[in-house]
Amino acid sequence: MFPARYAREMPHRYRLEAHKCKQCGKVFVPRREICDKCGATEFEVIRLSDRVKLVTYTIIHTPASQFKDQSPYALGICEFPEGVRLTAQVVDIDFADLKTGMDLQVEFRRIQTDGHEGILSYGYKFVPVI
């Protein structure tokens, strides 16, 4: 992955930053130039809560090549209290204990080892609430 592309994604991947519409309050990840609810174009940066609810999940047995060392792994969609939903791995939990509607928390983790150079990429994963 090219450094500029990776760097652009750091605010939400590293810090859970989201953009909140200054007019109607709708929250977005990633950032947008225009609010799809009210059409306003000004946003403030907020930090998302790190407690989420699991909406749905799957266990991936046939991943893309850069995830083969992690297979099988759970992948879930979670909803943040701010209304945003995101897709990420659910880790540190037995697959049998996964349940839609359960509370999870968001943690900063290594996501993948990129390309032949073995550059590490970081971001968020969902884990059980401690």
Partner: peptide, 16 residues
Amino acid sequence: FNGATFPGLYALMARA
């Protein structure tokens, strides 16, 4: 980036 594949996305729909 986070590990989704196409079968994975449809599996998320299937479970829901």
